[in-house]
């Protein structure tokens, strides 16, 4: 119910206006936006593709896509209620950091 509400009230254009073209801050923003977003991974691919076209770095876009699918801010209350608040908090916070590391690692391996 919450996911459908968020998906409805946040327009797609919102995501493309936030990035500053700085690799470090964009990676943080990418991971942060991905964290609070919900929905099908396809949406993150489409938005990620758009962000790349607009000059956002591949590290930031990767952090965004990875955070989208690994962090569940919207699911957090459910995760905390069932698996424990400490675990849910540690998992989501570390997933935020790992999204940036995965972005940096992927781009470094590809040599881009």
């Amino acid at each position: 119910m919450l996911a459908s509400m968020i998906s409805t009230i946040i327009p797609s254009s919102f995501y493309t206006t936030l990035f500053s073209r700085n690799v470090f801050s964009d990676s943080l923003i990418g991971s942060a936006i991905g964290s609070i977003s919900a929905g099908n991974p396809v949406t993150s691919y489409i938005l990620g593709g758009e962000l790349l076209k607009r000059g956002v770095s591949l590290i930031a876009v990767t952090a965004f896509i990875v955070a989208w699918v690994t962090i569940g801010v919207i699911q957090f209350p459910t995760e905390a209620a069932i698996l424990g608040r400490r675990f849910a908090l540690l998992r989501n916070v570390s997933s935020f950091v790992f999204a940036i590391l995965v972005g940096a690692g992927t781009v470094a391996i590809l040599g881009l």
Partner: peptide, 30 residues
């Protein structure tokens, strides 16, 4: 839970958007 982010049915679409090499490396790194 982390590996749930890797979804085989969506991989072809990810390849279409970002290329095979990128998706293969990203999957391994994840």
């Amino acid at each position: 839970l982390y590996n749930r982010a890797i979804k085989i049915p969506w991989l072809p679409l990810a390849v279409a958007y970002f290329g095979g090499a990128y998706v293969a490396v990203l999957t391994a790194v994840m």
